[in-house]
Design a protein around this nucleic acid. Structure first.
Lengths: 200, 200
DNA sequence: AAGGATATCGAACACGGGTTCGATTTCCGC
DNA sequence: GCGGAAATCGAACCCGTGTTCGATATCCTT
């Protein structure tokens, strides 16, 4: 019973740990989730966990990276795609909202528990996120140069407000509220575009 | 040397404690600030603190309430003022941004450490905030009835995105960045209005 | 089948945390 | 100035925490 079993019975231990940690950190918060509760929920003991992760911090860091790496990769897709920049930007924005909602647990953790990471790792994550926003802003800038975006409000403020709203999703969005991730993504993207285009 | 002294030398102990707690909770986070560090910074001992506050939680709760009560009161002012609803809403929005920036420490704590409160108090704070948003939304609804606001995007989503962005301010706004609270408030309000008014 | 490496266990450790409480000092009305 | 109440101290307490580590079980290679 080896890899074949892992696929059919239950996931490998590291994966189970990350999965449980994601669920519990999102629900109770990082600091209110003890390592003991965590490993119990995952059906192992502390020793097993410390075999795969150097610390509780490590586990948290892994969660951060998974979501951010995924979203950065997706953004790259839109940035490099052909077509008008306005369309690509709108699609990228809607996609960010959608993936944030579909990975709500991770999203909640990222925006709520960043300051629980060790300082170096905080810096690393912040850098990654800054990188994401800069790539995003590069598309906005591209649109501005082409004369597509010409808002009264500084464009980076428009984009920043959008990011703020996205990061805050975890605080209020609940499933089954009559609006799924894709629907909300469309609205959010629409709102972003109206901000970038508006001129009164 | 009593009240007169409190006014001229240093604030009363409970005030000092709240002030230090606000600063430290915002900087290091609630859970990374020990009661010992806190009382040392405030120049007293644990006993003094536990004389005024039942728990560390109590202290946190006091910080929450101060900011929320202040902002709710201000919102009421705009809601009850005379004049077109669009103007009042814009002013209220700009004011929320401004007061959030001027009380950045409290704002950071509110949005970052809500889940550290005891469940009952979490509920209480959430209820207060919901109340705030409902009053705000009532003005939006007023404008919709009058035909002033007619966005493609559902109005409550526009408003919610605005709140999200405001709550997220603490994550990126830094003083001395060439844009003060009032200036940013204007931009944010402008953006909110453009969302509420837009129709394409 | 043997052997070493990997995975998992389980108990103990070290430590800092929030909280309690009786002693001591400071304050204020009489 | 006295006396009781309020404020403050300081040390001890208890508990849960993340982490370590040697022992044991399981696996994969040869």
């Amino acid at each position: 019973m080896v890899d074949a079993d892992r696929g059919e019975r239950s996931p490998a231990v590291p994966d189970r740990l990350v999965a449980e940690a994601t669920r519990m950190f999102a629900e109770r918060g990082f600091e209110r989730t003890s390592v003991q509760d965590l490993v119990t929920a995952a059906g192992v003991t502390k020793g097993a966990m410390y075999h795969y992760f150097d610390s509780k911090d490590d586990l948290l860091y892994a969660i951060f990276q998974r979501l951010l790496a995924m979203q950065r990769e997706r953004l790259d897709g839109y940035a490099k795609a052909p077509g008008p920049v306005a369309d690509r930007l709108r699609a990228a924005a809607a996609d960010l909202v959608r993936t944030s909602i579909e990975n709500m647990d991770e999203a909640v953790i990222v925006f709520r528990s960043l300051h629980m990471l060790s300082p170096e790792r905080q810096r690393a994550i912040r850098a990654e996120r800054r990188d994401y926003q800069e790539r995003f802003l590069a598309m906005v800038e591209e649109g501005r140069r082409e004369g597509v975006f010409r808002s009264e409000v500084p464009l980076n403020i428009v984009a920043t407000q959008f990011f703020g709203a996205v990061h805050h999703l975890g605080m209020w969005y609940r499933r089954g509220g009559g609006l799924d991730g894709a629907g909300l993504g469309d609205h959010f993207a629409e709102l972003l575009m109206s901000g970038l285009l508006a001129r009164d």
